[in-house]
Nucleic acid binder design. Structure first.
Lengths: 201, 201
DNA sequence: CTCCTTTTTGAACGATTGCTCAATTACGAC
DNA sequence: GTCGTAATTGAGCAATCGTTCAAAAAGGAG
């Protein structure tokens, strides 16, 4: 063995997530990345291979963290549906804080829209992440239906897509900097959409 | 008078809309713009001032065209609410065609997400366009409420934001390349959300 | 035709892009 | 201490970025 690695891969990735989430792929230059990670180009390329590679890992890390956040929210509720409704409301609420997160919008959606016609590899990755999220939401809803929270006629996969579209719309609206009150109303209205599919009104 | 202008400003703008809508601001280089407009840099700068200026005009042109499309849809329906519902379904349907438009997603939302933390001027323009759209939807809904299409308790401005978020989510989902059938279901489900606020049954 | 005006052209600018690699530095083994 | 290995550095690469401007081209007026 010889010299220690000065940089922790995980914390470097977190900083990369912060920058890329805020400014996007094309909006983040290597010079800004060097500054954000406090690493020189050689170290960055030795560790992550390329800007593309770094972004790809950052996107994956972001998605994993997002999944954990949803899971935490659900643990606080006996009812799955109520957990999902609270999740929507909490997104709406967090969009009130100005600079709480690097961006109010979802990094995955930002990446999808930015790269869909310019960077096929990134678009494919964003797409597969969104498909995975859709699938896990569908599983949650199917579980909720089995528990009797949802009406039997509810199509869990179809409802999952509706729910995912709500999240996309909600978080994109967050970038508009509306009144916190308006955002909260929006979160409530989206949560209310789920009531349509519940057994007890 | 002397030499004629070889380029028509309006058709040049249409071509610019096509490129920028597809690839975004950072994703469209001046070289690509020159090719798309069939203009040399000098002419472009003489006509539009800068890449920023061209993008700004293209975004405004896109928004205007989008407004006209909504107006056309509404003309086909006696009921405002049914017109809006059909508008949602038609968006979902047009996301089925692969290369009908430069992009399935909305150029205004793409611009907002891309520029919110990198290009304040563009973000402000996208924001004001979205505010204007929200306002005109709210006026439509208020009109619908006055006509008795919507329940008296409906808050038209709040409902307008819910509707706008639906459109954002729907068109962003379009970039995912789902089955046309899934997109159509999504459009139907979003249209059904409006039923909650209608008077009859 | 000859002027005069206006538009178009494209070579070329300085700045920035993502990226490389030889030199330097820092640590563990001995 | 000396040596060997691995990580870090940063000057600098070729390419591309958005942009400029003097020169060329194209029409109308006389």
């Amino acid at each position: 063995m010889a010299r220690h690695a000065r940089y922790d891969r995980k914390t470097a990735l977190e900083k990369a997530v912060g920058l890329f989430w805020e400014k996007g792929y094309h909006g983040s230059s290597m010079k800004q990345i060097e500054q954000a990670l406090d690493m020189r180009p050689g170290s960055i390329y030795a560790t992550f291979g390329s800007k593309d590679g770094l972004f790809s890992e950052a996107l994956a890390a972001y998605a994993e963290q997002g999944g954990r956040e949803l899971a935490v929210h659900l643990k606080n509720f006996d009812s799955i549906v109520e957990g999902l409704q609270d999740y929507l409301r909490s997104i709406a609420c967090s969009c009130g804080d100005e600079h709480a997160a690097p961006s109010r919008a979802c990094m995955i959606v930002k990446t999808l829209l930015e790269s869909s016609n310019t960077h096929p590899a990134l678009a494919a990755q964003a797409n597969s992440i969104l498909a995975a999220i859709e699938h896990s939401i569908a599983e949650l809803l199917e579980q909720a239906r089995a528990r009797g929270e949802l009406v039997q006629s509810a199509d869990s996969r179809r409802l999952a897509r509706l729910l995912q579209a709500q999240i996309m719309g909600l978080r994109s609206m967050g970038e508009r900097n509306l009144d916190p009150e308006a955002m909260q109303d929006l979160g409530d209205d989206m949560a209310a959409i789920l009531d349509r599919y519940r057994t007890q009104h």
